[in-house]
Amino acid sequence: MEVRTIKVFTTVDNINLHTQVVDMSMTYGQQFGPTYLDGADVTKIKPHNSHEGKTFYVLPNDDTLRVEAFEYYHTTDPSFLGRYMSALNHTKKWKYPQVNGLTSIKWADNNCYLATALLTLQQIELKFNPPALQDAYYRARAGEAANFCALILAYCNKTVGELGDVRETMSYLFQHANLDSCKRVLNVVCKTCGQQQTTLKGVEAVMYMGTLSYEQFKKGVQIPCTCGKQATKYLVQQESPFVMMSAPPAQYELKHGTFTCASEYTGNYQCGHYKHITSKETLYCIDGALLTKSSEYKGPITDVFYKENSYTTTIK
C-alpha cells in the first residue's frame, strides 16, 4: 500500500517557510505537534488534498525554529505562539472599519479597549522592536488589523473576551517599542525636605499616572512627601515624541487643539466601556464603527496623549 502524501510549508514567522512532505494517514499533531492554519487549530486533523502548498504555523520545537521565533517575536515564552494563534482565530472574524481616516474595530468580545489602543497607536510616533509587531502594525494602518490585535493580546497575556485596560495595554506595548531616546527629568520640591531631581528613561519617561493635564504637570502637581507634608512635583525636561497622561476616570474637559487623542471610560472596574476622542479640525468621538463630532467635550476621561518633541522648564 502506497503512502499518500502532500507537500506543505511549516513556519513560526510566515517569513521562513520549511518544506514538509506530510503523510495523509496521520494527523498534523502526530507529525508536527500543535499546528495552526489561519489561526485555526488543526492539530487533530489529517492532511487533505486542499492543504497542498498551504502554510501551517507550528510551535518552535527545534533550534532553527526557536531562533526564527525569537528573532521575529522577541520572546522565548513557549506558550506565546499558541496564544497568538488562538487569538487570531477570533480577531480574523472582527470587522476593521476605516473611521475618520483611522483603522478602528467594530465592537465584539469586549474589544473596546483594543480599538482605543489601536486608534491611539496610529496617532503617536512609535516604532516597535519585534519585527512581528512592526509588520502587523503597518498592515493594521492599511486596514488589516487582525494579526496586530492578536499579537497585542498575546504580548499582554490576554484572551479574547476578557476586559482590558488601555493604560495597561499601552504599557505592555511600550515595553516592546523603541523608547531608548526618551528621557524625563522631574523635580520634587518640599518646604521641609528641599528639592530632589529624578531622571527617568524609556517607558517611565512617557507615562504618568495622577493627572490628565500635561500643562498642569509642567506647572506642578501636589504629591505627598515622605515627611508627610505636601510637596510639588513638576516637569523639568521632556525628550520624547509623545507623552501619555493618565488618571482614574473623572469628568474632564478636553479643549480642541490642546491634545492629540484621549480615552474615555464609562462604567466601573468590573464592567465598563471605552471610547476614543481625537482632536482634528474639530473633536471626534470614535466608538467602534461609530463616529460623532463636537466642538467641545466633557466626560469621564482616563488617558490623554500629547505630541511632544523637546521641553525644558522655565521655572527657576
Results as ranks from 00 to 15, higher is better:
residue 286 I to H: 04
residue 69 A to V: 09
residue 10 T to N: 09
residue 124 I to C: 05
residue 76 T to N: 08
residue 136 A to D: 03
residue 148 F to C: 04
residue 95 K to R: 11
residue 267 G to H: 09
residue 231 A to Y: 01
residue 209 M to G: 10
residue 223 I to V: 14
residue 293 K to L: 10
residue 26 M to C: 14
residue 283 L to D: 00
residue 42 V to S: 08
residue 199 T to W: 04
residue 246 S to F: 00
residue 6 I to S: 07
residue 302 T to P: 01
residue 111 N to M: 03
residue 285 C to G: 05
residue 267 G to L: 06
residue 18 H to D: 08
residue 275 K to V: 14
residue 202 G to N: 05
residue 213 S to H: 05
residue 91 T to D: 04
residue 64 T to R: 10
residue 122 Q to P: 03
residue 160 V to K: 02
residue 263 S to H: 15
residue 139 R to V: 07
residue 201 K to P: 02
residue 49 N to L: 13
residue 240 S to N: 01
residue 268 N to D: 15
residue 25 S to E: 09
residue 106 K to W: 01
residue 72 Y to S: 10
residue 305 F to C: 01
residue 208 Y to F: 09
residue 62 D to K: 08
residue 91 T to L: 04
residue 179 L to T: 03
residue 263 S to T: 11
residue 201 K to M: 11
residue 281 E to A: 05
residue 23 D to E: 10
residue 182 C to I: 03
residue 257 G to V: 01
residue 268 N to C: 09
residue 158 K to A: 06
residue 302 T to S: 07
residue 265 Y to E: 00
residue 72 Y to V: 06
residue 59 L to P: 06
residue 53 G to Y: 11
residue 183 K to I: 09
residue 123 Q to N: 08
residue 228 G to C: 01
residue 143 G to E: 04
residue 207 M to P: 04
residue 77 D to I: 03
residue 111 N to A: 03
residue 221 V to E: 06
residue 85 M to L: 13
residue 87 A to F: 05
residue 37 L to E: 14
residue 303 D to P: 00
residue 194 G to W: 01
residue 203 V to M: 09
residue 96 Y to M: 03
residue 112 C to Y: 03
residue 15 I to K: 13
residue 153 L to M: 11
residue 294 S to Y: 14
residue 81 L to N: 02
residue 274 Y to L: 00
residue 203 V to S: 10
residue 129 N to I: 08
residue 104 S to N: 05
residue 205 A to T: 04
residue 101 G to P: 03
residue 117 A to K: 02
residue 299 G to L: 00
residue 120 T to M: 08
residue 42 V to M: 12
residue 14 N to Y: 07
residue 175 Q to E: 11
residue 236 V to K: 06
residue 118 L to M: 08
residue 96 Y to W: 03
residue 272 G to C: 00
residue 247 A to M: 06
residue 254 L to T: 00
residue 183 K to R: 14
residue 133 L to M: 07
residue 194 G to C: 00
residue 207 M to S: 07
residue 300 P to E: 10
residue 208 Y to W: 10
residue 222 Q to T: 13
residue 180 D to H: 09
residue 275 K to E: 04
residue 177 A to M: 07
residue 218 K to A: 06
residue 282 T to S: 13
residue 27 T to Q: 15
residue 236 V to Q: 07
residue 270 Q to E: 10
residue 248 P to T: 08
residue 311 Y to V: 08
residue 65 L to V: 07
residue 260 T to H: 07
residue 181 S to K: 10
